[in-house]
Design a protein around this nucleic acid. Structure first.
Lengths: 221, 221
DNA sequence: CATCTATTCAATAAGTTTATTGAATAGATG
DNA sequence: CATCTATTCAATAAACTTATTGAATAGATG
């Protein structure tokens, strides 16, 4: 094989993979599956596309081995093939936030509307937890909490926050986290809790980012 | 702004960026520019596309801020906008080598043809250098050596190897490196040197990967 | 100031990707 | 075994991407 043919084939192979990630619905699916496995129906509903269309996108991702599946009863559960897939999405996300002023601006503005102020990094949270007790809230849907969460976090889906907020311990910092930097569950929770007078802040990244750092995670069976 | 509109805009922004990287010529350009700045003409020649076509691809990359330019005389030099761009390409490359059996196979086979055996990782090289002297060869074109190389490396472009090989010190391990894991300059150099009886091995990654790790680099003016 | 040169632009045709339909399938459940 | 349900398949039209031309531009050089 000639040098040029070799290069063309290698770059085309990697490009196939990149093309699979070069669609807004598909990256939304990758980010969603970073929370844990989901059915086609669930993915379609959550991303706002038709089931047939979601299925097609899922097959594009599966075609380049980014996803794996398992069947349970009538449902097929899709999941990320491995941690490298999330790592690649993470670095595209970082690049986007850094390079595209519009994206950074969009995130900033949308958050500002909701009057959310400080955000704690994962490293800051780890350090704080060593020195003082912190109330950690996982505000994602209960099913995602079940599939994996930060140890010691309480499951507090947004839908149940109003009901349980008054029962939270006072006098401790409350830290809420959700799916990732583009998820606004945590912002909404923090806005609500601050309204009740709690000292609440958001975690700047989500559960998948915690997991990706190799920090310990808790799973319910 | 509604939640869905926000998400759509964020994901579409990042997708624009990913689309810019979802073309085999364009990733080859990114990898080439990781060696240092180049003119349009040079990029066209090296990647085997027409100048007009190279210019178009360069503008796609520049349009999403992945590249920056400077003019010198009649020439326009393109370069990577910053280190995050290489980091993103690096993680797509890693994903490709891991997920796509064909790509890994292709790289393995092409190398095997050239009878190249062992490869040293960057970490192994650093450790070895602490314990014993190593002859380090930068086999990229002289201009790329000038723009940045591993300290203590000798510039030994493939074209000049035959002429200078006999002058290399004997009794020391010879390590050759080039542009990256898809570059075969180093393999060719090692094959040649082993033919002459030198104990020679390749570095498994290239100069940009060394630089990206934050290790020291040398630049000539 | 005329000329030269490297780069970009514009138009085009061929090829790819996408969402939408509605039908087909494969496995579970009564 | 018939029925149901979640998922996939196939066909299509519209929207994008790409390489190829050849012309235009902007700046440098004599």
């Amino acid at each position: 094989m000639e040098k040029r043919e070799f290069k063309d084939r290698v770059y085309q192979g990697i490009t196939q993979l990149t093309k699979a990630l070069a669609n807004s619905h598909r990256v939304e699916i990758v980010e969603l599956l970073a929370q844990g496995e989901k059915t086609v129906e669930h993915i379609a509903a959550e991303t706002g596309v038709s089931v047939a269309n979601a299925s097609q996108h899922l097959q594009v991702l599966k075609g380049v081995q980014l996803l794996a599946t398992r069947r349970q009863g009538n449902h097929i559960f899709y999941r990320l093939a491995n941690d490298t897939v999330f790592a690649a999405w993470q670095s595209l996300r970082t690049l986007g936030l850094l390079q595209l002023a519009e994206v950074a601006q969009l995130v900033h503005d949308f958050r500002d509307e909701r009057h959310t102020l400080e955000r704690l990094s994962i490293e800051e949270l780890v350090e704080r937890q060593l020195n003082e007790p912190v109330v950690l809230l996982d505000v994602r849907p209960a099913e995602e909490y079940r599939l994996g969460h930060i140890p010691q976090a309480l499951s507090m889906p947004l839908t149940e926050l109003a009901e349980h907020a008054r029962a939270l311990p006072t006098g401790q910092l409350v830290v809420a986290y959700c799916r990732g930097p583009f998820c606004v569950f945590a912002d909404e929770a923090v806005t609500y809790l601050r309204g009740l007078g709690y000292p609440a802040v958001c975690l700047s990244e989500g559960y998948p980012d915690w997991k990706q750092r190799g920090l310990p995670v808790a799973i319910l069976n």
